[in-house]
């Protein structure tokens, strides 16, 4: 269990996160939503020890994050950043100290990427390489920072399946999304940020009934029924 209380992040005189309090449970996928600049990336970074100093508290299973040793932190969190580093190194060299990662990449039928240079890969291929690196680590919280932006439909699906698998393994998954409908489809709960503050946290049904999509994203809710009579709620 990850408890965030009164979390505040200030940088350069600007308040990026303002007094956030919420709890993340094991075995659930949390979708992080919010308009650009609402603090999604900052929150993911804060939960991954990016900020040595923060206001309020972040507790992983009761232990304050800033008091954890390096070795402890290594077992707490892993992330797939929004901007994947591009450098002229071989993929194999990235995996050299991490045997599991190559097997994971193989699991995506992408083992040929190991023989290539990172700089020669497409944006989406790089995401898959770093996804493998991230998944090779055994931690409590896995964060995905808009990882879907660079991926095609097939690898999006694979990534989503991985998120579900992690949740089934009793891990906590936090993934930021731009696509509200995707977030509703995949997540167990949604967290909506607005100007650095927590605007909403709840399951998809409440998100729809409270018209969060309309209030924070200026979207219109449509209810659709398919040929077999299944009901869908979609925001446009």
């Amino acid at each position: 269990m990850i408890e965030v209380s009164s979390l505040t992040i200030m940088e350069g005189g600007k308040t990026l996160l303002d007094n956030l309090s919420f709890t993340l449970e094991e075995g659930k996928i949390y979708a992080l939503c919010g308009v650009n600049g609402s603090g999604k990336t900052t929150l993911i970074r804060a939960l991954n020890s990016y900020f040595p100093h923060y206001g309020g508290s972040i507790r992983f299973n009761g232990k304050e994050l800033s008091r954890c040793s390096r070795k402890e932190k290594e077992k707490l969190h892993a992330l797939l950043p929004q901007s994947i580093p591009v450098s002229s190194v071989s993929t194999a060299s990235l995996f050299e100290h991490n045997g599991q990662a190559a097997a994971l990449l193989d699991g995506f039928s992408l083992s040929h990427l190991v023989r290539q240079n990172l700089a020669s890969l497409s944006g989406g291929e790089r995401v898959m390489v770093f996804l493998s690196l991230m998944l090779s680590r055994d931690v409590l919280l896995y964060s995905f920072d808009e990882s879907e932006a660079n991926l095609d439909a097939m690898y999006r699906k694979l990534t989503e399946q991985r998120m579900r698998k992690l949740a089934e393994e009793k891990k906590t998954v936090l993934a930021s999304f731009h696509d509200i409908n995707k977030a509703l489809e995949i997540s167990d709960e949604l967290i909506v940020l607005s100007e650095g503050r927590l605007a909403f946290k709840g399951n998809p049904a409440v998100f729809i009934s409270d018209d969060i999509g309309g209030r924070f994203f200026s979207l219109t809710l449509r209810k659709l029924t398919d040929d077999e009579g299944r009901q869908y709620s979609l925001f446009f």
Partner: peptide, 12 residues
């Protein structure tokens, strides 16, 4: 070389 975010997430 994995970048600041991943480096932090590994506890460094």
């Amino acid at each position: 070389r994995l970048g600041d975010e991943i480096t932090s997430s590994m506890g460094y």
